[in-house]
């Protein structure tokens, strides 16, 4: 068992018991803890994409950051012009990205099958989040999306989305076992993790449940891989060095979130903040996913050496 899965189990057990007290203050505190988790570890895991691309510290790094910001702005523009397409692109990309980070240690020869496998896993997680919380999420589509919107369709047809993803993952697991890509132990672990994620999504508030998954299962794992890479390439030799690497861009991202919150408050659009945060997260996810895809492709040995 990897340490992040252990943390995930422990946090879920403790959060579940605390939430069962049904005390408003505890709910607020736990939501705040999750918010802090996303703002720190969640954002930080994508804050060293420049170093992961191997552009170094010179001019190439500046060019990389400019392209990165341009990609980010382009995606924000897609949200502005056609929010439905942006949402679908975001779901597809993040599904693939979540799956890739989780399953990177399973070696699959076929590039297409590997892509399909990663996509199915991530898709199952996202569809489970929507399907198991469709009532509370339908409030969002009423507030922010105009009919007919892809998000509305997603909540309405979430059962089909979830069932299809579940079948895909089941088929993929069968193939993995049949082709000897993964041992029974590894498959059991993955199935167990998916069951725990599903229970967490079902039992807890969608924001808290997703934050726990995103921060502990996804971001913490990605940061472990990134730290191994930085250590191997001697970009950072200690946790302190690693912290110094991701701190500046994390701070800038957080500043942007605060500026956005303040602007929303100032112009009396505070009710739109969750929607804008979703757009902001999707904008930083898109270029990050592409960087991570290249990172995993060219550093397999380092990633596989992580216990």
């Amino acid at each position: 068992m990897q340490i992040n899965l252990f943390y995930y189990l422990v946090t879920n057990l403790l959060f579940l018991q605390l939430l069962s007290l049904e005390v408003e203050v505890i709910h607020i505190v736990l939501t705040a803890i999750c918010g802090v988790g996303i703002a720190t570890l969640g954002i930080a895991h994508g804050a060293i994409d420049d170093h992961l691309s191997g552009v170094g510290f010179g001019k190439k790094r500046i060019t990389f950051i400019i392209y990165y910001v341009l990609a980010l702005c382009l995606f924000a523009f897609i949200w502005y012009v056609k929010s439905e397409i942006a949402l679908i692109l975001f779901l597809v990309t993040s599904s693939f990205h979540f799956g890739q980070t989780q399953l990177v240690n399973i070696k699959i020869k076929s590039r297409f099958f590997s892509w399909f496998f990663n996509f199915s896993w991530g898709s199952l997680v996202i569809s489970a989040l929507i399907f198991l919380n469709k009532d509370s999420l339908s409030v969002i589509d009423n507030d922010y999306f105009l009919f007919p919107s892809s998000f509305k369709y997603l909540t309405i047809y979430s059962s089909y989305y979830f069932a299809t993803s579940l079948i895909f993952v089941f088929v993929v697991f069968l193939i993995l076992f049949w082709k000897n890509y993964a041992s029974l132990n590894i498959l059991f672990k993955e199935i167990y993790l998916l069951v725990i994620i599903g229970c967490s999504f079902y039992i807890m508030d969608p924001f808290i449940a997703f934050a726990l998954f995103f921060v502990i299962i996804h971001a913490l794992k990605a940061m472990t891989q990134e730290y191994a890479f930085c250590k191997n390439k001697k970009i950072a030799t200690s946790y302190k060095d690693f912290f110094k690497l991701f701190f500046p861009l994390t701070l800038i991202s957080l500043f942007m979130v605060f500026a956005m919150t303040f602007a929303m408050y100032y112009f009396d659009y505070l009710h739109l903040l969750p929607y804008l945060l979703l757009i902001f997260l999707s904008c930083i996810t898109i270029p990050h996913s592409f960087v991570m895809d290249r990172f995993y492709g060219s550093n397999k040995n380092i990633i596989n050496s992580i216990p």
Partner: peptide, 13 residues
Amino acid sequence: STSHSVTYGMLST
């Protein structure tokens, strides 16, 4: 009592 159940449940956990 939920608080009793949760307190000892957490300690046991």
